[in-house]
Amino acid sequence: MLDNLDELFKGFGYTLFLFLVSAVASLVLGTVLVAMRVGPIGVLRAVGAIYVSVVRNTPLVLIFIFFHFAAPILGINFRWVQVHVGGFDFTSAFATAFVALSLYTACFVCEALRSGVNAVPMGQAEAARAIGLPFGGVMTQVVLPQAVRASVPPLASALIAMLKNTSVAGVFFLAEALATMRGLTNDYSSERIGIFACFAVGYILLVEIVSMISLGFERRWRIA
């Protein structure tokens, strides 16, 4: 196993990159979705609600399958993505995984934030409206900052789930941690237990880091 540490690191490298870019994208998209869902415009509310119920109720694997095997027929493909950085290849498989994970996780981010929005007392939004803030200002200045504080634990859960969901990409052409593990267990059948343990520890460490960051935010915002 020690001989293959570089493979292990590379596998987790893909896992980590995929997690980071998808986390950012799903946070952004989730915030847009929650603004649509709690906003004053009926059409956007409906679009947001439909998006969340359709995508959230679809298995992640199906979303991957869609983007890998159905979307190309519709002319949607990610073959044009060709980024090569220091031994890492961010190509079609990475881009597809990024899109699938971000679209999927955005639903959970949206719902986590919505639970936070619901936790913000009505009076906060009323007071913000009363001083003349338009809807955007009410959301960005008053409601969302407080909603985010209240949503940190469920947001962390959504992101941790996504971190582990990156392993789905491992069966769709991306040599992230899980795929690397399967390659190694095949080559070194006799060291299976050790290989499993190493990768489990890797995932545990990454998840622990995310948990710590979330805990840090919770502490920092407790005073307010």
């Binding site: 906060q124 009323e126 007071a127 913000a128 003349g132 803030l133 338009p134 900052p145």
Partner: peptide, 24 residues
């Protein structure tokens, strides 16, 4: 609703029973 209403509200001050100061 809309921008015009927001402008109107800016000219009308309001004080609530439960204060509603922005907690954060």
């Amino acid at each position: 609703e809309g921008k015009a209403l927001a402008r109107h509200r800016a000219d009308v001050g309001m004080v609530f029973q439960s204060f509603n100061l922005f907690a954060h």
